[in-house]
Write a protein that binds this DNA or RNA. Sequence first.
DNA 1: GGGCCAATACTG
DNA 2: CAGTAT
DNA 3: GCCC
Length: 346
Amino acid sequence: MFRMISNRQIADAFDLLADLLRLKDAEGYRFEIIAYQRVAEALRELPRDVRALAAEGRLQEIDGVGKAIAAKILELLEHGTLRLLEELKAEVPQGLVDVLRVNGVGPKRAMLFYQQLGITSVAELEAAAREGKLRTLPGMGAKSEQKILESIAALARRTTRARADIALQAAERILRALQALPNVLRAEIAGSLRRGRATIGDIDLLVATHTPAPIMDAFVNHPDVVRVLAQGETKSSVELLSGLQCDLRAVPPERFGTALSYFTGSQAHNIRLRELALQRGLSLNEWAFTATDGSGREILCASEEEVYAQLDLPYIPPELREDRGEIEAAQANALPNLIEISHIRA
DNA sequence: GGGCCAATACTG
DNA sequence: CAGTAT
DNA sequence: GCCC
């Protein structure tokens, strides 16, 4: 019947497709790229074998799968390859996909490096950077070149995502230091760590304060920090001893709810919330709800409960915020009860 | 057919 | 302003 | 690309 090919492998194929299109023409294929990435994500989360679903002719029941993508999945199941993918590989060197993983390198620069210097791999990129060749290119300078070298080094240090328990320890050390600072009204972990994911890519922290500058300063000078990736008034980014990246955002307390919601994600969950907001004539971002009627009227939320209430939803716990049906469940008032430690009897 | 989520920081 | 990242 |  179908080939032995896992959901994961099919997802990887769609991710590769998205990356190659990004290199070819990111803007022109903007929505196709998003569509392929969405499906890759959906396939990885899918609890069933895609082959079974395909055999039943129900591929289009998968979120984000329409006629064209269903056909591509079938093609993969039958032949193990995609014509479109093979054609793209012939146009764009596959090694450039790895180059895209380097911080500071997007599709424009990856293609620039390829066309001007013949770079088709991270190793070649590193060599060129060491020889000072990158800074000679338009839009590049010594600082960008240095950043690329450091990104490659960081990439080598940490190839896999961190286990949540490890990341949590690292996060709490920073969090305690922040909470001890004057004028820090609240400090919380956000991101995938707060959502309780098993592995996390980076640590997201959020503080409520009226005076962000000294807090950002203390953050980047924390003893666990080995490198400052960026420092600004409202957000900073560092690399910790563990090799983990840690981002800190500061917001005024009256906006803490929208900010915490925003930075807790997931991205897919956020997009759903913003769509709900738009349906109510409101635009939602990390700072506030803003009326779309041009009045500029803002609705501030100090707590997440207020954010969900504004959207006529019950509070959705972070662990459920993956756009895996929790919005619909909340609207039907049918959210599952999460098991908490306090509910478990010895 | 036409829309598809939003805003900010940094570098050159 | 363009490109990248978050 | 998908979806309304």
